[in-house]
Amino acid sequence: MKKRSALIIIFTLIVGLSGLSSKTFAETAKNNYRLYCSQCHGLTGNGEGIDKPTMGVAPKIHNNAEEMIKLKDADIYTVTAQGGASVTKSALMPPWEGVMSEAEIKDMVKYLRELCNCTEK
């Protein structure tokens, strides 16, 4: 009985403390997109973000189904997590794995699929 109570206390503590992390991960993928991606890829995902004009390489157009259909979900995950340089693309696309959690990046892949209204081939 005592063992059971101790386990309940430990479980409660773990759940409670996880809520005290530096960032509340209740943010939706759309909010993350607006915060981390829209400055280059545009608020609507059309690649016309405010930072685009000075970029040597045009940002990916996320609402373009013809282009996005060519990408595998796993590739989108890798580029989002590890940045463009990890797949020999532009380093202007930074790595987000230290900023967004694995779950958030997975949600981001789903959100990009919503933007293009497409799935991988």
Binding site: S38, G42, E48, G49, I50, K52
Partner: peptide
């Protein structure tokens, strides 16, 4: 925070 001061005008985000 740019999000508060950017609007999409004619398909292009502008400050």
């Amino acid at each position: 925070l740019y999000l508060n001061h950017v609007k999409t005008v004619d398909g292009v985000d502008r400050i």
